[in-house]
Design a protein around this nucleic acid. Sequence first.
DNA 1: CCCCAGGTCAGAC
DNA 2: GTCTGACATGGG
Length: 303
Amino acid sequence: MRAVFPAVCYDLAKTLNCGQAFRWRPVRGGWEGVVEGRWVRLVQAGDTLEVEAVQPGEDWDWLRRYLQLEIDFPAIVATFPRDIPMQLAEQACRGLRLLRQDPWECLASFILSSTKQIVQIQQIVETLCARFGEAVPVPQDHALAYSFPTAERLAACREEDLRACKMGFRAPYLRETAGIVARGESDLAGIGRLPLEQAREELITLPGVGRKIADCVLLFAYGFPTAFPVDVWILKALRGLYFPRRRPTPKQMHEFVSSYFGPWSGYAQQYLFHFMRTARPGTPAGGATPSLMNGLTHGRNLH
DNA sequence: CCCCAGGTCAGAC
DNA sequence: GTCTGACATGGG
C-alpha cells in the first residue's frame, strides 16, 4: 500500500534521527522502520511524505498519529521564548517534529538509554527486536523486520539473555519493569489519562525509571506538551545559557524551565537538545563548543 | 591510559 | 534533603 501525505514544514530526517525514536534507518533515500508491528517506508519529497506499508486497507490513522501530521506546528514554534539561543535552535531544527510513540516501546527503549550514546541505543534496541520481537510482513525480497518485543516476552527472558543484547546493568531494570507491565500492575494505557504530575509519579515507581526517563516517555509517547527531560546535554545548555556562574539545583532548574519555555516547553527542549548536539559545524554530532556557549551567553541580552 | 555517553540506585552524611 | 560511587559497554 502506498499513499502521499502533505507535510509542510516537516523535516523527516531530523524528526526520525534526533534521538526520540531508535528504530529508523536511512535506506536508499528514504527511511524504514516498524511502527506498532507494521513495516513502513517513508520518503520526503518536498512538502509531501510518500509512505509505503505492507498492511492491506486504506486506514492510515495509525501512521498519521505516529507522525503527528495534523498538528498546528507553526503555532507551537511561535510560543517559544524569543531569546538568542532559541532563535538559533529554531534555525538549526526547522521542521523537527515530536512523534507520538507506543508507550511500552518508548519506555523500554529509554530504560536502555541511560549513559549510552544514541548510536549504541539504536544497536541495543535492534538486537533486542531481532531476538525477541516477531517477524512482521515486509515487501518481496526485503530483509526481515521485527516488531518491538512485548512486555510479556521480555518478562519471560532470563537476565543473561537480555545482557547478551549488550545492555549491561540495564538488563534487570528492563526485565523487572517488563514484569510489572505484563502482570498489569502498572497500566500504561491508563497513565496517559492522568494529569502530568501523577503520570510522572506512576512511571517513576518503575525500576530503572527516574525523572529524566519518565519525562522522555511523557513527552514522546503520551504527548504531554510540558514534559521536559533534563539530560546531560540540556543541563550543559541551561547552565551555560541561562545560569552562567550559578549552581541551580535540579529542582530550581525544573521550576525555571516550566515557567520560561511556555506551554510547549517539551518541544522547546527537543530543539535545544538537537541544537546542542549538532551545533558545531563539521561534525555530525559534535556538540556546542565552549566558545559557542560563551558567544551566546555574553552576546546580547537573553531575556 | 583517560573521559564520556538522552541515568538510576543505594548508601553515606 | 544533597552528594557519591557503582553499574556495562563502546567510542574518541
